[in-house]
Design a protein around this nucleic acid. Structure first.
Lengths: 335, 335
DNA sequence: TTGTATGCGTTATCAT
DNA sequence: ATGATAACGCATACAA
């Protein structure tokens, strides 16, 4: 069933070396022989065995991928579309590396080495799970998504976080809002830190009152948004607007507001983050900071491809612009 | 950096054969040597090279995966959680096989062979893209998700389709509805055919009027649901309820109904299919046929694992039960 | 231009 | 119980 290079060589009446040269577009083969071999390859539908090739070359035409939050990562399904596009361009297959809990001596680097992956994608926001230090030192080309680790062979890519939040604050400010609340995701995550910084800076720049009571630390979930809003509602002098670090948080805020009889946007303005499909269909449609998931995925693979082929290039740190999509959840401050 | 079996052998003062035996839990090694070798392996964080192992064994501890609709498949991100769980149990990594368009002579089987995958998952509803016949004949253990291909080494897994729709029709019938419309997905897809059959049978059993004007063929998208509902609204004697083959279709129906000033569920009852996250948050919350995505994913991998290890077992055909989740989009027929 | 031979890291066969 | 050695399919240095 499975042909190999010997079968092709025999069928074409040449040596395996010649076949190998043809496969890899190497010189020193006469045009006539080349054509003949190519014909046989096509006839037999021959594809060289990646495994063998990987063994001898130490390469595998494979990008490994780790997810720190598992495949449940909320944007995975979006980013992955971009990954796929760039994967097609570059000819890599994507290997999802499953971290079996084989005791504490599991090594992410060993897993990569064992699989001979040419590059690695690390994806997510929970940095405490894996030992990334060893990854940084391994010399394996690595791109982090939504984490800012860097090393001689490691870069990262993330959406614009600081400026995005600043833009949101300014927008609310233009709508006369002064009491602007902020519901963060995990504060120990890179994006959480960045977005909080954006909020802090913007409030400062605009000389708006920075009230710790207006700041809540969530976990990107709807439930955390709901809980945070409930707390805000207890305040005697509550916020007139809320910036949320995820659309799911915003969804929880919307729900809590509705329960309290507050009208969005008349009584309360809400801004989300991410621009997931659902944000179009909330009641009212959510004004949100739209991430460019497609570009995020595409650039991740393309960068990895460049790092693999140009070992001397410094690894990139890429910030992908976002876009404040204005829909119906914000209005002029009622006060 | 990367240790190999020779390094371990040297460090433990034994031959590579012995090390190999220890790694693979083979007999004919004294307890003392075994312990010593194991210690060295742990110390060095050694993982045997999958590539080399794959070459000699023709296996790779890898499951290949093709997506006929690309990674944009609407439930991919849900099913994948189940895949991951079972992957962890069984110790496989998951290789996403990207179909580069390398001309018409691209062969899905050759791709699998070239990668030495132990089994293959084929996922989606567009059967025309790939040549599955060759896959069925290849002898590579294969599981289809949402397609009913079978072969000596190929089985499939899908949600209950016929009975699910029947249940929905009966539910609407209990609510006194007679004029029940049906918006299908692609009719050339397996699930489309099945669901339509369920509708047809249920209408027949309950002796309800089967009106071709109440049947629309969509493509699972929101837009197709919107368009279909617009058509229903033109009818002089339109339906009082609609069963949709996806939640996205239902979303389009909801939108068209709202535009027409119809109240759901008072004027129109709507049932979706899938039970995606968004269905909880529509206005009103959508009554829908909930697919058990987790089980779908888990069973797919577990079945593959069994097929790989028991070549003589007939490949399974698995139907996963669904669950009609009753929320707020259906009411007693107003007429 | 073409072909022979070696090795990549591992498992498996067959000694010892 | 242990070890030497031949595969696995391919790329490549080297020889012809």
């Amino acid at each position: 069933m499975a042909k190999n290079i010997h079968d092709i060589a025999k069928a074409a009446g040449v040596s395996i070396t010649t076949v190998s040269k043809v496969i890899n577009n190497r010189p020193h083969v006469s045009p006539k022989t080349r054509a003949r071999v190519q014909q046989v390859i096509r006839d037999e539908q021959f594809i060289p065995n990646h495994t063998a090739r990987g063994l001898v070359q130490g390469k595998s035409k494979t990008i490994g991928m780790f997810l720190t939050t598992g495949l449940t990562h909320p944007f995975f399904s979006r980013v992955v579309v971009g990954l796929e596009k760039a994967l097609k361009e570059t000819g890599y297959d994507l290997l999802y590396l499953v971290q079996f809990d084989m005791g504490s001596d599991y090594s992410i680097v060993q897993h990569c080495l064992s699989r001979n992956v040419d590059g690695v994608l690390i994806f997510g926001f929970q940095s405490h799970d894996l030992n990334f230090e060893e990854m940084l030192q391994s010399g394996i080309p690595t791109i982090f998504i939504d984490m800012d680790f860097t090393g001689p062979r490691a870069g990262y890519i993330t959406s614009e976080n600081i400026d995005s939040i600043k833009t949101a604050v300014r927008y609310l400010h233009q709508l006369q809002h002064q009491r602007i609340a902020f519901i963060n995701g995990h504060l120990d995550s890179y994006v959480g830190k960045q977005r909080f910084e954006g909020y802090r800076l913007a409030m400062q720049e605009l000389e708006l009152p920075y009230d710790p009571g207006y700041i809540s630390i969530g976990d990107f979930s709807k439930e955390s948004g709901y809980a945070a809003m409930k707390e805000f509602l207890k305040l005697s002098n509550g916020p007139t607007s809320v910036i949320c670090c995820s659309d799911m948080i915003a969804l929880g805020v919307l729900e809590a507001a509705a329960e309290a009889g507050l009208s969005v946007p008349d009584d309360l303005s809400v801004i989300g983050f991410d621009g997931i499909e659902m944000s179009k269909h909330t009641q009212p449609a959510l004004t949100t900071i739209q991430q460019d998931f497609l570009t995020l995925g595409e650039q991740a693979i393309r960068s990895l491809n460049e790092m693999i082929h140009s070992p001397n290039l410094p690894p990139p740190s890429i910030i992908v612009p976002t876009n404040l999509v204005i829909r119906d959840s914000c209005a002029v401050c009622p006060l």
